[in-house]
Structures are given as C-alpha cells and as structure tokens.
Amino acid sequence: MKQTDIIPFYGGTHPELFEIERRCMDREGKVIDELQQLLPNGLVLDIGAGNGFTAEKLQTTQRTIIGMEPDELMIDCTKQVIFTKGCAQDIPFHTHTFDAAYSTWAFFFEGITDLDKGIAEMKRVVKKGGPLIIVDNYGEDEFCALSDRPITSSTNHWIKRGFDYHIIETAFIFDDVEEARKLLGFYFGDPGMAVEKTRFEYKVAVYTALNE
C-alpha cells in the first residue's frame, strides 16, 4: 500500500468532528436501510470502513462485514467489526473471497485516485454475480451547495462502467445550530459558519452493479 493511494481524511485527527458527521449525516438511516436490502448474506467487504460505523449496523447473524481501512487512527476496536488494514487499489484478499462489496463516501473520488484500479480490485475479490455498491454525493441539494468546489460524483462515470444508480433523498440533521456550524464550518469555511438551521437537504447516489 502506497501513501499516494490513501486519501487524506480528517476523521483520525479530529474524532470529535467525525462523531458529529456520522451521527448527523443521513440521521434517519435511509442509506443503511437501502444497504440492508441490497447486500446479501455471507461475507461482505466494506472498502474504506472508517471507524466501522456502517459495518457494525449492517452486520447480522447471517452477514459478516469485514471493514477494510488504510488509516489506523480511524479504526475503532470497540466496535463489533472485524477490521483489516488495506486500500482499494490493492485489496489484501484472494480472488472471489466475498459475496459482495460496498464503499460509502470513501475511495471512489473521481480525479483524485485511480478509480479503475479500485474498481478492478473490487471486482476481483467479489464472487461472480455478487453486488458491487458505491455510495456518494449526488448534489443538487442544500448540503453540497455550501461548497465552493465540486464535491459530487459523476453519474456518467459510473454509467460508462456498467453501474446503474438511484437517488436517496435524506438529510444532515444536527442537534443545534452550534453543532451544525462546528461541522459545516470545518467543511466549508464561512458559508458553513453562517448557517442558521439544523436540517440540510442531502441527496445520495447509490451506484450498483453485479460482478460479471
């Protein structure tokens, strides 16, 4: 694993902000509910698992999630998740190990990382016919409008690579305005510090394909 394969992320050095993000992003749990429906039973890989927040929620008595995370500072060993260290471009598992794989707001950032290498590795470790799922920002919402730079995924990119997609309309929901300003100010600077409410419309794209 090369250092250039890892996207710098604030969660390991600012755990208090990451706690706000995970608690308030999609607070109604719509993305988790969707993944519960899409993922099969068996062995599933979470690429860029962070602190294991999503993996822990998706585990069942019939489904084991392996959380793969390159940043040791992100891993939360108190969670009921099996973790391994690794990056999307070089997944440390044998071919056809998993029944499915997914990634939520993690590796697949167009123009920053080698997307095709990551997709190829994802396909390699998932059994034929198993689902591949990418969750990312869709845009055209209140949350993404706060940014002065593009933070949305390219639907054309994924369509060209054989993925379908659908949109989940969810929200960032904060406990109070002070909490909203703390996280959104960190993300977006002055526009985030100027917010006056606790709920922000947020659209998520869920990209899906079956491994061929």
Score class of each variant (00 low, 15 high):
T152P: 08
G86W: 08
A88T: 08
V204P: 01
G11P: 02
L115N: 00
K57L: 14
G192K: 07
I20D: 03
E69C: 13
D46K: 02
S103T: 12
K160A: 12
M193T: 14
C87G: 14
A49I: 12
V31D: 02
G111D: 13
P150L: 01
I134F: 08
A101M: 07
K57T: 09
V44T: 02
E16D: 13
E169W: 00
I133Q: 00
E72N: 14
A171H: 06
L43A: 01
Q3V: 15
E21D: 14
T78G: 09
A145L: 01
H157A: 13
K57N: 09
C24A: 12
S153V: 10
A145S: 03
F174R: 10
N211V: 00
S147I: 04
G111A: 12
F53T: 08
E212S: 15
I151K: 04
K182Q: 13
M68P: 06
L184A: 10
V126F: 11
G118H: 08
I167R: 10
I82R: 14
K2E: 15
W105F: 13
F163S: 10
I119K: 08
F172T: 13
A101E: 05
T113P: 01
E56V: 03
L132D: 04
D136F: 04
G50Y: 02
E121I: 06
G192L: 02
E169P: 01
G42D: 03
M1F: 15
G192M: 05
I75R: 13
I7D: 14
I66T: 04
F98R: 03
Y187E: 00
A194L: 12
P92N: 06
H166L: 04
I159M: 01
I6Y: 05
G139L: 09
I119V: 06
E21Q: 11
I173Y: 09
A145R: 01
F109P: 00
F143E: 05
F200S: 08
N156H: 12
G129Y: 02
V125N: 10
E19D: 13
V125A: 11
K57W: 00
F143K: 07
D71N: 13
P70G: 00
G129H: 07
Y102H: 04
D5P: 10
S103C: 01
Q80T: 15
I65E: 03
T4R: 15
I20R: 01
I168H: 06
E19R: 07
R27V: 03
H157M: 05
H94Y: 13
T113Q: 15
E178I: 03
F188R: 06
F172A: 12
L35W: 02
R161C: 02
A205W: 10
